[in-house]
Design a protein around this nucleic acid. Structure first.
Length: 772
RNA sequence: GGACCUAUAAGCUAGUGGCAAACUGACUCGUUUACACCGAGUAUUCCCAGGUUCGAUCCCUGGUAGGUCCACCA
C-alpha cells in the first residue's frame, strides 16, 4: 500500500474496474429496488446542483444494493425546446429558419457528439447506474412509448384539440404549458389614455397600449358611481376610431388606475376569460412571431409597436399622464420572454376534472421530506388549464396523428407502426378522404412523464410500476413529478413510485447560484481538486430537501476524511502480521466492549439509511470512525500490539472486523476509497464492496463500561493537557474504588493508553517526574 | 393576497420536552513505530413575545427576518 492516497489515480482505476467488471449490472431480479432515475437534460455539462442531487440518490441506491438488488437505469432527456435551444447555441443556427428534416439531422448528430462526455460526468462522481440500460427520450423506443401514450389517452377521450387563446412564447414561437411560466419583475410605463364616450373623455390606464387596436370592450365596476351612467354606451377607441361597449363587470377594480379597464384580445389570462364570459368578438392583431398585424403598425414587434403607439398618442394629445411602475410579468422559463396569448390550435390532455384524484394519488406516495407533498397539492389545486402538450417546434417526438381533409376525423396509426412521423407517411381516412399530417411535436414533458414506462420496457417489463423511488429537486415537482403522476394514473391507474425523495438546492452564501451572477461552482473542478469522494461527502452533509451552502472548506474536510480512512487502514494492516483471520477463542474485555459499540453503530446507521437519512448515517459513521475508532480504540490497543502483549490476536480480530464494517457503512457515501481498501485487503467472495452484504448488528448491549472508560480517559487527558504534558507522559491515576470495580479488567487498558499506574482513592492524576 | 419552508457558535450544518452539538475557523499545548499532519484542551450559541409544562431551543399562538411555490400583475 502506497504511503499517500492519490485520489486521482485511484478514482480513475476504480471507475475502470466497475465498468470492466460490470459491478452495477442489473441482475434481473423483478423485486429489485427500482429507481426512476431522472434523465438529465443534455446540456454542455453537469452542474453542481446535479452533482448534489444525484449523489443523494446514489447514497440510497448503494445502500439498497448492499441489502438486495437494484434496478438503476440511466437516461438522458434530449428532445424538445431545451435541446433545440442548446443546438441552436452550439451550432449558431435558427431552427425556424431551417427545413425541419435538416434541423433534426443536425440535432441528432450533435447529440451523438456531446452526450457521451455529458454522461461521463455522472460516472465521474460515482453514480452507480447500470449505464448499459440506457435510453434517450428521443430514441426509437422512447418515441414509440410516448406516441403510444398519446394514442391510448386519445382513445380514452383524454386528449382533445382546440382552437383557443393559448399561452404562447413569441421568442420560441410555440405554445407552452402553465407549468413553464415564471415570474419576472419588469419596469413598465403605466399610461393613462383618453377614450371617449359621447364626446367626453374616458380615461383608461394601461401598460399595454400596443393592444389598443385589439380592444374589444371596456369594463367598469357596477358600483362605481363615476361611471354608472356610461354602462351600456359605446366608447370610442383612440387612434383607431371604432367603438366598443362599456360593460359593468365586478372584476374591474375601483381603486386601480382610473377604475376603468380595457379588454383586449389578448392581454393576459384575464382578458381570455372576460372575452369568453361576455361573448365579445376578438380582434386578433398579434402574429405568431410576436409581430403586429395592424394597420399602421404592421411588422413591428410588441415593444417597438408600444413605443410607436405611445408616440402617436402623444402626438394626438391622447395621453393624460404617464408613470413608471415595476410590475410582475409572466415569462417563459426557457428563454425569459414575456408570454402572450394567441389564438392557435393546440392539443391538450384533460386534467382539470381530475384534481381530486390526482391529489389522492399524490398522497399515496411517501414524500421525503413530507412537506413536499404540500407543494404538490398546492400546484394541483391551483391548476387552471388543461395540460397543453403540443409544441410548434421541430425537434421533438412527432404527434402521431392525421386529420381527414374531408370529414375532419382524426386518424391514428396502428401500434405496430410506431414510432412514426406523420409527415413521412400517407394515410387515408375511412371516408376516403386524404389524411393531413399533424406538424406539431409533443412537449418534452409528454415524454419525460413516462420514464417509468420507458425504463420498464428496457427490461421487458420485468420491473413494474410503481417503482420504488424517484428523486429530483423541488423545482420540478410541478412539472416532472406532477406529469408523471398524471400519466401513471391515466395509463395504469397506479402511482408511479412508492417513494419520492426531494433534494434541495446548492447555494453560495445566501445567494442562489446562477450563470448570470457568475457565481457558479463547477463540479468538474471540485472533483479535480478534491476528488469525487470528498464531493459526495459534502453532498451528504445536509438533510434531504434542505439547501446547502457551498463552502470550499467542506470539501477539505471530506478530503481529510478520505486520507484518514486510508491511513487508518494502513495502520490496521501494518499490524495484522501473523493474524490468522479467525476469531480467537476469547476476546479481551475492551475489545468485546468496542464490538458492542460497533454493533450499536450498525443498528443506528442502518435505520438512518432506511429512512433516507443519509446525512445522519454519514455523521454517525464519521464520528465513530474518527473518534471512537481512531482516537480512542487505536490508541488503547497500540501498546498491546507494539509490545506483542497477551491478547494481540484479540485486537487483530477486532481491528480487521471493525474496519470492514466501517468501510461498508460509509461505502454508499464514499464509494471510491472504500472500494480501494476493500480490493487491497478485504476482497473475498464479492468482487466489489458495493456488492457485499450490509453488516448486521449482532448484539446490542449497553456499552456503559466503554463509555465510563472513555470518560475517565478524557478526564486524564484533560489533566495532562492542563499540565502541559504529552499524552504518553508517565503518570499515576487515582480512581474511586467504585469506578475501578466497574472497569474491571479494562483498567489494564487504561494503564496502557495513558502510560499510567492506577491507585484507589479520590480522582487525581500525578506525574512522574524523572521518567519519560 | 394565499400556501409552504427556514431561523442553533465567526462560517456551514446536525440535534433534543430535562447538562446544547459535529466540522471549519480562533486561541493554548502536545506529538514523530497510521496520518508534512495528527492528538488534547479552551472560548462563544438555540430570532423576539406570549402560552402549555415541574421544566421549552424543541410543542402551541402571535410577531420579525429570509427563502420557495402559486395568485395578482387594466
Amino acid at each position: 500500500m502506497a504511503n499517500k492516497y492519490d485520489f486521482k489515480k485511484v478514482e480513475a482505476r476504480i471507475k475502470g474496474f466497475w465498468e470492466k467488471e460490470k459491478v452495477y449490472k442489473f441482475d434481473g431480479d423483478s423485486k429489485a429496488f427500482a429507481v426512476d432515475n431522472p434523465p438529465p437534460t443534455v446540456s454542455g455539462k453537469m452542474h453542481i446542483g446535479h452533482a448534489f442531487q444525484y449523489s443523494q440518490q446514489d447514497f440510497i441506491v448503494r445502500f439498497k444494493r448492499m441489502n438486495g438488488s437494484v434496478f438503476y437505469a440511466f437516461g438522458t432527456d434530449d428532445n424538445g425546446l431545451p435541446t433545440e435551444r442548446l443546438i441552436e447555441k452550439l451550432k449558431k443556427v435558427k431552427s425556424k429558419e431551417m427545413p425541419r428534416a435538416d434541423f433534426i439531422k443536425l440535432c441528432l448528430k450533435t447529440l451523438k457528439e456531446i452526450t457521451p462526455k455529458f454522461i461521463q460526468d455522472w460516472k465521474d462522481i460515482g453514480i452507480s447506474a447500470d449505464y448499459d440500460i440506457y435510453y434517450s427520450t428521443i430514441d426509437e423506443n422512447s418515441r414509440k412509448i410516448s406516441q403510444r401514450s398519446f394514442i391510448e389517452l386519445f382513445k380514452k377521450d383524454r386528449i382533445y384539440k382546440k382552437e383557443f387563446p393559448t399561452i404562447w412564447c413569441p421568442e420560441c414561437q410555440t405554445a407552452i404549458a402553465q407549468a413553464e411560466l415564471e415570474d419576472k419583475e419588469d419596469a413598465g410605463l403605466f399610461s393613462t389614455i383618453k377614450f371617449s364616450v359621447e364626446g367626453k373623455d374616458l380615461l383608461i390606464a394601461t401598460t399595454r397600449p400596443e393592444l389598443l387596436g385589439a380592444c374589444v370592450g371596456v369594463f367598469v365596476h357596477p358600483k362605481d358611481k363615476r361611471y354608472k351612467d356610461l354602462i351600456g354606451k359605446k366608447a370610442k377607441v383612440p387612434l383607431f376610431d371604432y367603438e366598443v361597449p362599456v360593460i359593468a363587470d365586478d372584476s374591474a377594480d375601483i381603486e386601480k388606475g382610473t377604475g376603468v379597464l380595457m379588454i383586449c384580445s389578448y392581454g393576459d389570462k384575464f382578458d381570455v376569460e372576460a372575452i369568453n364570459r361576455h361573448k365579445l368578438i376578438p380582434r386578433l392583431i398579434l402574429e405568431k412571431d410576436g409581430k403586429l398585424n395592424l394597420e399602421g403598425y404592421c411588422g413591428l414587434k410588441i415593444k417597438e409597436a408600444r413605443k410607436k403607439i405611445l408616440n402617436d398618442l402623444r402626438g394626438a394629445g391622447l395621453i393624460k399622464e404617464q408613470k413608471e411602475i415595476v410590475h410582475v410579468v409572466n415569462v417563459h422559463d426557457k428563454c425569459g420572454t414575456e408570454i402572450e396569448f394567441l389564438m392557435t390550435e393546440q392539443w391538450f390532455i384533460k386534467i382539470l376534472d381530475l384534481k381530486k384524484k390526482l391529489i389522492e394519488q399524490g398522497r399515496k406516495i411517501k414524500w421525503r421530506p413530507e412537506f413536499m407533498l404540500k407543494r404538490y397539492e398546492n400546484w394541483v389545486n391551483g391548476l387552471e388549464w388543461d395540460w397543453s402538450i403540443s409544441r410548434d417546434r421541430h425537434f421533438g417526438i412527432p404527434m402521431p396523428v392525421w386529420e381527414c381533409g374531408e370529414c375532419r376525423k382524426i386518424i391514428l396509426p396502428k401500434e405496430s407502426e410506431l414510432p412514426i412521423d406523420p409527415l413521412q407517411i400517407k394515410k387515408t381516412c375511412s371516408c376516403g378522404g386524404k389524411g393531413i399530417p399533424e406538424k406539431k411535436v409533443l412537449d418534452t414533458w409528454a415524454t419525460s412523464s413516462v420514464t417509468p414506462q420507458i425504463c420498464s420496457s428496457l427490461v421487458n417489463g420485468k420491473i413494474k410500476i410503481p417503482f420504488s423511488v424517484r428523486n429530483n429537486a423541488h423545482d420540478i415537482i410541478r412539472t416532472w413529478d406532477f406529469y408523471t403522476i398524471v400519466k401513471s394514473y391515466l395509463h395504469e391507474n397506479k402511482i408511479p413510485w412508492k417513494n419520492m425523495m426531494v433534494s434541495g438546492f446548492v447555494t453560495l452564501g445566501k445567494e442562489k447560484m446562477s450563470k448570470s451572477k457568475g457565481n457558479v461552482v463547477e463540479p468538474q473542478k471540485v472533483i479535480e481538486e478534491y476528488g469525487a469522494d470528498a464531493m459526495r461527502f459534502w453532498a451528504a452533509s445536509s438533510k434531504l430537501g434542505e439547501d446547502l451552502a457551498y463552502q470550499e472548506k467542506d470539501l477539505i474536510a471530506g478530503k481529510k476524511f478520505v486520507t484518514k480512512l486510508y491511513n487508518a487502514s494502513r495502520f490496521v494492516f501494518m499490524n495484522l502480521e501473523g493474524y490468522k483471520f479467525k476469531k480467537p477463542k476469547k476476546l479481551e474485555k475492551i475489545d468485546e466492549l468496542f464490538l458492542e459499540k460497533l454493533n450499536s453503530l450498525i443498528k443506528s446507521v442502518t435505520e438512518s439509511f432506511e429512512n433516507y437519512e443519509y446525512s445522519k448515517a454519514k455523521n454517525e459513521t464519521e464520528r465513530f470512525f474518527w473518534h471512537d475508532f481512531c482516537d480512542n480504540y487505536l490508541e488503547i490497543v497500540k501498546k498491546r500490539i507494539y509490545q506483542n502483549k497477551k491478547g494481540k490476536e484479540s485486537v487483530q480480530y477486532v481491528l480487521h472486523k471493525s474496519l470492514l464494517v466501517i468501510l461498508k457503512l460509509i461505502a454508499p457515501i464514499m464509494p471510491f476509497i472504500t472500494e480501494e481498501i476493500y480490493q487491497e485487503h478485504f476482497k473475498e467472495k464479492e468482487k466489489s464492496i458495493h456488492l457485499s452484504k450490509w453488516p448486521v448488528a449482532e448484539k446490542a448491549k449497553s456499552g456503559d463500561e466503554f463509555d465510563l472508560f472513555v470518560e475517565v480517559l478524557s478526564k486524564v487527558r484533560q489533566e495532562k493537557t492542563n499540565n502541559k504534558k504529552a499524552m504518553n507522559w508517565e503518570c499515576v491515576i487515582t480512581l474511586p474504588e467504585k469506578e475501578i470495580k466497574m472497569l474491571g479488567a479494562i483498567v489494564e487498558d487504561l494503564k496502557d493508553v495513558m502510560n499510567a499506574e492506577i491507585k484507589s482513592g479520590k480522582f487525581n492524576v500525578e506525574f512522574v517526574q524523572f521518567l519519560k
